[in-house]
């Protein structure tokens, strides 16, 4: 069955009246959870963003646009632009590492496939902070890598690796790589081998087959993986602090600082809403690209 056909089938199933009760039962708890745990806080920060900052935390019930006005300070654009840059580099690197890895995993015999997939998620079993601290141990000037290199006489002065933008990127790629590999794996694994054979039979070179057949078909996985890496990278504030030495701040740090240091809830809310808006734009782009792909290749 073609992809489009499969989708139509699912739609037809979903809209039959007999499944309405089933839908309520299955979707209900999830939607209720979202309404309470996502909807309510979201409404709260939208409300906060239009109120006056209380001197000692909290908000004063006087409507104002002051918090939104603060966005005019160019410093915030620099921080947002810097965050987008770092998150983009991390996403591209994760894709470059994750795509071949997912391809290899998908080609493994069933038994080894499971082992490889478990290995991919294994880091999640240990604490995120501990794993980040491990990078400090590895990268610092008196750390493992510098010591080994110095011991071999390859360097005289330590390479200043920690507390740089590069260290932040390394940390983000390391932490979020599994979120890239898993959706890529699932889209690659689903590929019908017959499609590749057909492309070959019709005379396409391996490169052309990849570019015209395989890449478009795995695009949903690429998009999903990229979003899964980009979104949390953009909002991360722990990695810039630990591996960046606090010398470079990302938008996540900015939001956190407004709430916990500046006691400025309205402006913190404004910044949080900006991040959410950015995410919505990205998801919209993803949805559009996917729809186009379906239209072209369905």
């Amino acid at each position: 069955m073609s992809l489009a056909g499969r989708l139509e089938g699912e739609e037809a199933k979903a809209s039959s009246p007999s499944s309405r009760l089933g839908k309520t039962v299955t979707l209900g708890p999830g939607l209720a959870y979202l309404a309470v745990m996502l909807g309510a806080p979201l409404a709260l920060i939208v409300g906060y963003s239009f109120l006056t900052r209380g001197s000692f935390g909290g908000v004063v019930m006087e409507p104002t646009l002051d918090a939104w006005g603060k966005l005019a300070n160019p410093i915030f654009f620099d921080v947002v632009a810097g965050s987008i840059k770092i998150a983009s580099i991390a996403t591209v690197l994760a894709l470059a590492i994750g795509y071949p890895a997912a391809w290899v995993i998908a080609g493994l015999p069933a038994k080894w496939k499971t082992v490889a997939l478990v290995a991919v998620v294994l880091p999640f079993w240990s604490n995120f902070l501990i794993r980040t601290y491990a990078w400090i141990v590895l990268l610092n000037n008196e750390g493992l890598i510098n010591r080994v290199l110095r011991g071999w006489g390859l360097i005289d002065e330590p390479l200043g690796m920690l507390y740089t933008e590069g260290a932040i990127v390394v940390g983000l790629v390391y932490i979020y790589l599994p979120l890239m590999i898993l959706p890529l794996y699932s889209s690659i694994e689903r590929l019908d081998p017959a499609l590749r054979e057909a492309a070959f039979d019709l005379g396409a070179s391996p490169r052309r087959t990849f570019r015209r057949v395989l890449l478009p078909l795995t695009l949903p996985g690429i998009m999903a993986g990229s979003i899964f890496v980009f979104v949390p990278s953009l909002g991360n504030f722990v990695v810039p602090e630990l591996l960046g030495g606090g010398q470079e701040i990302m938008i996540g740090n900015l939001v956190r600082d407004q709430f916990f240091k500046a006691r400025d809830l309205p402006f913190g809310s404004v910044l949080a809403l900006c991040v959410i808006a950015l995410m919505l734009v990205l998801l919209f782009i993803q949805a559009t690209v996917l729809r186009r792909t379906r239209e072209t290749h369905g």
């Binding site: 900052r53 001197s55 300070n73 410093i75 407004q258 500046a262 006691r263």
Partner: peptide, 14 residues
């Protein structure tokens, strides 16, 4: 207080 916070932000981002 907000002035200190703004300056801290500008130092961190600058």
């Amino acid at each position: 207080q907000p002035m200190y916070t703004d300056i801290a932000t500008e130092v961190a981002a600058g």
